[in-house]
Nucleic acid binder design. Structure first.
Lengths: 129, 129
DNA sequence: GTACTAGATAATAACGATTCTAAACTGATA
DNA sequence: TATCAGTTTAGAATCGTTATTATCTAGTAC
């Protein structure tokens, strides 16, 4: 597909299937979620391909790795600035697009060069209540 | 030690050593950091004891598990409300005690019951620049 | 269109953090 | 001081992720 040409990565059918799965995906899938979804179309799909592709997309700034779930990495194809609201029970994740102004005075940063921030809200989702 | 009696967990010498190591510790250690430190005093110390004790302390609300480092869990004996500033290179962590007011309007929370939030600032520390 | 090649895929092994198991041990209570 | 529920230990098992290697193929050049 031409729409992925701008990524400047070699476009294989497997990669296109992964990209299609990720496009507009708001579920913040794990590698396993991606693997299972793409395996339906490519039964020989291996985990290595999922991880390789995610690595390539991360390097191109086209996918964000989330550390929200301590048991496994999750991935977000939306690289715009936003935050997350996580259900402490089922680990479902909702995007929060508010722009919060968080100023840290120099004397608190202990000589760090600040790059950015990320806010994790937590709560219990509708289904888990 | 009497000072740990209030935890209401059985106090073994190994647990006291772990508690002593954690007391006032601002390094946000991993299980391995704790294991290595306590092993000096108790050469037969096993990882299971470290994880068991951390689990007990988590349940008592006396230790916080941090998901900041995607390759391993890190632990914070300071359970007061605070945030973290993380070096993207060496993964060192500094506490930020500012109290930020983060209001989320009802219509953004998609039916979640909000519990709290945690802010992760990231940057490059003095030593890694 | 055909050949070439750097880079991708797939199967599997390796790895590291964490959890589990089962037997021996011990702190806290009576 | 005897008891026992809970703890420690060593090691095995598990699980997510990374590495390896042989095979394959997308993209380029001819």
């Amino acid at each position: 597909m031409e729409e992925y040409r701008h990524l400047n990565i070699k476009l294989t059918p497997q990669r296109i299937a992964i990209l299609d799965y990720l496009k507009g995906n708001k579920s913040h899938p794990s590698a396993e979620d991606i693997f299972k979804a793409v395996k339906k179309e490519f039964p020989t799909m291996s985990f290595a391909t999922v991880y390789n592709t995610l690595e390539a997309l991360k390097n191109k700034g086209n996918v964000q790795e989330l550390k929200i779930d301590s048991s496994k990495k999750r991935y977000d194809p939306d690289c715009s600035t936003h935050h997350h609201l996580i259900c402490t029970k089922c680990k479902s994740i909702v995007d929060i697009f508010n722009d919060f102004k968080l100023n840290l005075s120099e004397d608190l940063t202990e000589g760090f060069d600040l790059i950015g921030n990320s806010i994790e809200f937590f709560g219990v989702c509708h289904d888990c209540k």
